[in-house]
């Protein structure tokens, strides 16, 4: 199973980076999104895949009878998902403002800091 996920992660990274190297601002954002999916999945897979059920105690139990999925990567990823949403939102607004100010959405033309 891990092998399958490893391949998926590889595709997500490659696709994300390829999009980030294109010239459109929107593609840059989408690439960033793919890349963060890849990173999240990487953490998740590296933490170990266990089909032992969610790390949630059943009613009435005080300790886990079977080993559940690892809660730590989950907590990390939860944080990461929300943060990457904020990053996407911020990037979107930033690029929109850039586009309106500079008048181009071509990343290659953005190398000068002076606006005309």
């Amino acid at each position: 199973m891990e092998v399958v996920l490893a391949i998926v992660i590889g595709f997500l990274y490659g696709g994300g980076l390829y999009l980030m190297m294109r010239r459109n601002l929107i593609q840059l954002i989408i690439g960033l999104g793919l890349l963060s999916h890849g990173a999240n999945l990487l953490i998740f897979t590296a933490g170990g895949l266990r089909k032992g059920g969610a790390p949630i105690l059943a009613d009435g139990e005080k300790v886990f009878s079977t080993i559940p999925a690892d809660p730590l990567p989950q907590a990390l990823i939860l944080t990461s998902i929300v943060i990457s949403f904020a990053v996407t939102a911020f990037a979107l607004v930033l690029f929109l403002r850039t586009y309106q100010t500079v008048g181009t959405d071509d990343v290659d033309e953005l190398k000068e800091t002076e606006t005309e």
Partner: peptide, 16 residues
């Protein structure tokens, strides 16, 4: 916080 952040961005973008 999450609610506020979300709406700040959505409203700001939507009113543009």
């Amino acid at each position: 916080v999450v609610l506020g952040v979300l709406l700040t961005v959505v409203f700001a973008l939507g009113e543009e």
